[in-house]
Structure formats: structure tokens, C-alpha cells
Amino acid sequence: MPTADGHLARVLADFRAGKVRGLARAITLVERRDPLTRQLFEALGPPAKSPLVIGLTGSPGTGKSTLGDAIVALSRKAGLSVAVLAVDPNSPFTGGAVFGDRIRMQRHALDPGVYIRSMGARGHLGGLSVASREAVRLLAAYGFDLIILETVGVGQSELEVAGIADTTVVVMAPGLGDGVQMIKAGIMEIADIFVVNKADLPGYERTMQEIRSMQNMGPKLAWKPPIVATVAARGEGVAELKQAVERHQAHLAASGEGKERRRRRLEEEAADLVAEWSRVAARKLVQEDPKLRRRLENEQAPYGVAEAILKEQGARLVPGVSSKEKPK
């Protein structure tokens, strides 16, 4: 078994040398929430350029992977390097999973300009996995021009993708719901672009019409999400989608919203990290400290213990900070 530092050094050397294995192993580090993650990012520093991150989300079976495949094909023709991060659910019972996204992307298998990674959501409920955001950051540091982030097949409230992607594409298909579905809160609100895929099936005009009328009911927005009809399996409509993404990018840049989104994203990421670090440390503390456990039992409420942990532990909640170290 290699030492942790030795492993990190090898991963970093491979990563910097542009070896796929280095990238793949770095993603595994963030995926298993390895304590080396922080050193990894500190060693890599901020990415030299920021790639475009397109999020693809929508119900199961609407054709997200197939659409992703079509976008990869089009982008490769334009000479862009592309990474696909495809998130799928794990079994809540066994933790196991079968990932099939590569099947739809087989034609890119031997293309060195394309990297595909399947990721288990591992029980996380927002449509992505806990590590998705960090994996996207690694793909950016590796130098990809375009990153496609595909969520699990979502219902109505798995909205995290909008917190990571520059442009969020909500993929729909004909026959999946009526006008009331369209005015519900949630997924319909995070779309920067709507795609009605499988537009060779009957009913697609009606789906487009319903999205349109939902939009007309609401207030006038600075960016009105365009609705693009595609038949992803044949590559139809994908060029129009690409144009819509470019228009959205231009809007983000001109309106300053892009900058605002990046700022919010970092704030959110810092808050999430505080939550994750504290949760991991607090769980351990409660398990190991009989006094805390007794207090929980006496009070039958978590507030006092939670406050005590935050107040007394402070800096010691940060991973890697020894419990003997004095908190500042």
C-alpha cells in the first residue's frame, strides 16, 4: 500500500502531465471524500481558463445521454475538447449501481479529446453527487473546453445542477405532463434553455406550446429561455441548441449575471463545505463522547448539543486539524 502523500504526488504528476489516469484518480479522490482533496486543489491552484459547463437535466428517458452524445459530436467537429460527467443513482438498498451512459457515447470511445466519467449519486438527493462540483473543477483544471454535466433522471426538485452549470438545459419529451406540471415550482424554473427532445413523436408541438404559455403567464424576464426542438438520436436541432447556448453565454456576459452566478456559486460552495466538514466531525464527536450522548438523551432535542459542538470545537471541525491543536 503506497503512503497517502506518495499517492497524491503520483496523481498530481500524472494529472499535470495530461495523463488520463491522473485525472481519473483525482476524481476518485474527491468521490470518496478523501482528506487529500484539499491538498490536491491547493496544489493545482485556480484553473488557467474556465470552460463552458452545460448542465443537462430532465425526467428519466427524455434522452439526456443521447443529447449529450450529439453535443459532444458537434463540439468535436468544432475542435473543442469535451468531458462528460454522467450521474446515475445508486441502489438505496445495496449501494450498487449499473451505469449505461457510455453505451450512448460509444462512437467517441477512442477519441482522445473526449473524457467520459460515470458517477454514482451515492444517495445524495439533489440530482448530482456530493463530489460533482469538485469533479467539474478537476475537469476544468485538466483543461477541457466544454464540460457536460448530466444529472440523474430527475423529478421536480433536483435543482443542484443550476448551481454548477453555466447554462442549464432542461430536457423534456412529448407526453410527460400537462399545463399544470408546467406551472409547478421547481425544475421548470431553473431552465436557461428548454429542449423538447424526440420531436419526431406526436405531441411535441403541444409540449412546446405548453412551455410557451407557462412563460407568458410569468413576469417578463431579462432572459426568456428559448425552446428548442431536437431529435437527438439523429442529431437534429443540436446546432440550434448550440446557438441558443451561445446566445445565453452572451447574455450572461453582457448583463453581468455570469459574474454574479460565479460569485454566488463560490459562496454556496464554501457554505456546503462548512456543512460537510462539521457534519463529519460532529458525528464522530457524538459517537465518541458519552457526555454529549447523555445530554442528547436528557434533552431529547439536538439544539444544545449542536451549539456546544460548534462553540467548543470551532477550528477543530476542519479535517486535518488535530484535536490537540488549540482553536484560534
Binding site: 476518485t28 441502489s91 445495496t94 450498487g96 451505469f99 457510455r102 460509444q106 477512442l110 473524457y115 466519467r117
Partner: peptide
């Protein structure tokens, strides 16, 4: 399916793969 039920993550790459495709997939997927 059985490996999934045993708690493993299975990446199925489909039919008619070349040895090179399989190895590249395994490296990309770590």
C-alpha cells in the same frame, strides 16, 4: 445486475467493443 445487487458500481459499455475501447473506459472510469 448481480454485481449491482452485491453493492458494486458496474459500468456497462455495451456490445462490440475493441480491447482498446475497454481499456480506455476502465482507465477513464478509474
Amino acid at each position: 445486475r448481480a454485481l449491482r445487487d452485491a453493492g458494486f458500481e458496474v459500468i456497462y459499455t455495451g456490445l462490440r467493443q475493441t480491447p482498446e475501447m475497454v481499456v480506455d473506459a476502465a482507465i477513464q472510469e478509474d
